[in-house]
């Protein structure tokens, strides 16, 4: 692990999340409790919670996670990969 990977996780933005943030991916400070993910993003990208995140799926590693409903608090660890996946409905 590089020093950056010891203190950050990688977050990937898809579809409207990518449009809203203007990024495909970036690194954010870790550890971060999963339930605080949306507030963290809201502070960086005001309005994103209501307009994008409210309907998104989120994955941690390669698994779908429930950001708010999960019983025990999951913590995003340094080096983890998170993806924000809005529903795409067109076709």
């Amino acid at each position: 692990m590089s020093s950056e990977e010891n203190t950050t996780f990688q977050i990937h933005y898809f579809a409207s999340a990518s449009t809203y943030t203007g990024k495909q991916t970036e690194r954010l400070p870790a550890p971060l409790p999963l339930p605080r993910l949306f507030d963290t993003l809201e502070s960086m990208y005001p309005g994103i919670k209501e307009k994008v995140l409210s309907s998104c799926g989120v994955s941690l590693g390669d698994e779908y996670v429930d950001v708010e409903a999960d019983g025990e608090v999951v913590v995003i660890k340094p080096g983890d990969e998170v993806a924000v996946i809005p529903p795409v409905s067109s076709g």
Binding site: K51, V52, S54, S55, Y64, P87
Partner: peptide, 10 residues
């Protein structure tokens, strides 16, 4: 997978 629909204007 997507219990809530995206806001209509987005």
């Amino acid at each position: 997978v997507f219990p809530k629909p995206p806001p209509a204007n987005t």
